[in-house]
């Protein structure tokens, strides 16, 4: 049985659900970032899958590459914010502690 479009979509939905669960349950900022990473990759899988099965267009694959690059950029910025959190909130990266934007 060759994997079809549905298989990929189910995989991506599962991955998205995992990411969402991770976002909702974790308090650790790094954990949240991991969740976001899972969600982005779920979207990337969707791009590639649709690109392969609908018209065999390369655009979706290029989109996925851009998605990976942007995710890396996003994480870089987010980690810098996490460092700032760490320094300003008593060496904690618990997001529940940081309920105020002003330091």
């Amino acid at each position: 049985m060759n994997p079809g479009l549905q298989h990929f979509l189910v995989l991506s939905a599962a991955l998205f659900a995992c990411g969402l669960l991770c976002l909702v349950t974790r308090r650790n900022a790094i954990g949240l970032l991991m969740g976001i990473e899972l969600i982005i990759n779920a979207a990337n899988i969707n791009f590639v899958a649709f690109s392969r099965h609908l018209g065999n267009d390369r655009a979706g694959q290029v989109f996925a590459l851009f998605g990976i690059a942007l995710a890396a950029v996003g994480v870089t910025v987010a980690l810098a914010i996490v460092f700032a959190l760490y320094r300003n909130f008593n060496k904690s990266i618990d997001v529940d502690d940081a309920s105020r934007l002003r330091g």
């Binding site: 969402l20 976002l23 909702v24 308090r27 949240l32 997001v95 529940d96 309920s99």
Partner: peptide, 13 residues
Amino acid sequence: QTGNLRTYLYIAI
């Protein structure tokens, strides 16, 4: 506007 990140997430989800 609680400022709590996870509350926002709950609402969004």
